[in-house]
Design a protein around this nucleic acid. Structure first.
Length: 333
DNA sequence: CCCTGAGA
DNA sequence: TCTCAGGGG
């Protein structure tokens, strides 16, 4: 679920204007899939399913949102996770436990006719398995968009690509990419800007966070931001009870990092976590060349294979193609 | 999440 | 043009 830095970052989010979003967006694929799978559900929590009972929520999310991105001048690149580091094992196990428990509670809530509970438990029972990953990847590639395989954490690879100048910003709901050093993080990147909350619709602006703003406003270094995260807990280490982002910030500023770790977590060596954030495994072997949209392939995949309505898919394909033609025309002049 | 259609 | 309700697969 990422790192709990929200309490010290709230003042640093700024609404992102459309102009600031044009360019190459390095999307944390796992994070995006998780969002789609947890939210795109019926009121009782059931996800969208095709005739064979396979989940299609993520395909709907990717297709419609990505199409919007393209028309807005956003060029998405999807970064998929590689092999998780050993030290993430505990987090992975914890997430699995929560999922299993939520699945049972979801069933229970459905039986009791508790829709609010059903939806909430369905959300936290969201799982990303091999089918989800391969079908998502297939659709992305049919849309002619680049896929990058991270050697390890996708967020680290995404941050690296922004640092290299190959992408303009990272898209994720989590703040971890800031620890991995991305200069720009964009959260809530949706076009409609609308989100349903408790049945009501509220508007959510995409927000942009600059690492330089974070560090200068808090008057800390990236290393110190990482230390705050280590105190509150990351995917790679459990945090210290009673220390949140605000307390962590204070402790770091008064130089208490080492002493607190020694006192509260005597058996924990923070060094591997620190160096993982500072120097994660990343790769240079990726290409961001735009492919072509395979309209027939998309129709076959979404409509024939997964039961999407042609009436909904075709207009979107037209919209994308129109934009693509515009761009090739522009490049002539 | 996103889209569509109805009604203002 | 906008908001809202309903449904998508």
């Amino acid at each position: 679920m990422g790192v709990a830095l929200r309490d010290i970052l709230t003042d640093l989010k700024r609404p992102a204007e459309a102009d600031e979003l044009k360019g190459v967006a390095a999307i944390d694929a796992f994070n995006a899939l998780y969002q789609f799978l947890s939210i795109i559900r019926q009121p009782d929590g059931t996800p969208l399913l095709d005739d064979s009972g396979r989940i299609t929520s993520h395909l709907s999310g990717i297709f419609f949102r990505t199409a919007n991105f393209l028309t807005q001048g956003i060029r998405p690149v999807f970064i998929f996770d590689g092999k998780s580091p050993e030290m993430k094992g505990r987090t992975i196990q914890e997430r699995r436990d929560v999922r299993e428990e939520s699945k049972e509670k979801w069933d229970q809530a459905k039986k009791e006719g508790d829709l609010t509970g059903a939806f909430r438990y369905a959300m936290s029972s969201t799982a990303i398995d091999a089918y989800i990953l391969s079908s998502a990847r297939q659709l992305i590639q049919l849309m002619g968009l680049p896929v990058v395989d991270a050697p390890s954490e996708g967020e680290a690879q995404a941050a690296y690509m922004v640092l290299q100048g190959d992408a303009d910003y990272v898209v994720s709901q989590d703040y971890d990419t800031l620890l991995f050093g991305t200069p720009v993080l964009v959260r809530n990147l949706t076009i409609s800007g609308k989100r349903r909350l408790h049945g009501r619709q509220i508007t959510v602006q995409p927000e942009r966070i600059l690492l330089s703003d974070v560090l200068s406003t808090l008057a800390i270094t990236r290393e110190q931001l990482i230390e705050i995260a280590i105190l509150t807990g990351t995917d790679f280490n459990p945090g210290i009870r009673g220390i949140g982002a605000k307390t962590g910030l204070k402790k770091i500023k008064s130089g208490e990092f080492d002493s607190i770790i020694r006192e509260k977590l005597p058996d924990f060596d923070p060094e591997p976590v620190r160096s993982f954030f500072l120097n994660p495994p990343v790769t240079d072997s990726y290409t961001l060349d735009p492919g072509r949209i395979d309209r027939d392939g998309i129709r076959a995949f979404l409509c024939d294979e997964h039961g999407f309505s042609l009436d909904r898919v075709d207009p979107v394909l037209d919209k994308i193609s129109k934009k693509e033609k515009q761009k090739t025309l522009e490049s002539w002049f």
